[in-house]
Amino acid sequence: MSNDVDLSLLDPILKKYQSQEGALITMLQEIQAVYGYLSEVVLTHLSREVKVPLSQIYGVVTFYAQFYLTPRGRNIIRVCRGTACHVRGGSRILEAVEREVGITEGETTPDLEYSLETVACIGACALAPTMVINEKTYGKLTPKKVMESLSRKDRKEREVE
């Protein structure tokens, strides 16, 4: 798989930040926006081009929660684990989601359909407990509502396919 990575997509980003000291994080953000995640091939190439040791880049990538070293699912589920949501039963929502999609926090389904993440407050605390699927926010959740929004039936069908 690594062979068919189109490294030329990196060129505009490399060019844009060529001379800028400390642009590493911004570059990584833009690179991730292009490829969806940060693969070894891409990071190795970046390291050579910007003359920053790969170990240092790896250190930065693994420090920040928003960088991913593996591909992510087509649908990103983010369950809020903020305080307001916790107080209103957020941990039960996370459990319900885990049960429904069959993966735990930080994982991606093998068919790359879903990735499950937690986030500290999405700023809709009045609607706690909350989760976000892709761009859409779901509020005032109950385990039952979670099951409806992630219809198990729907998933079963996909598994059969």
Binding site: G22, L24, I25, T26, L28, V60, Y64, A65, Q66, F67
Partner: peptide, 18 residues
Amino acid sequence: AGAFVCGEETALLASIEG
């Protein structure tokens, strides 16, 4: 890029420096 400690001022500076 998702790190709570970056709200601390010296960590924030390190983060801006890449």
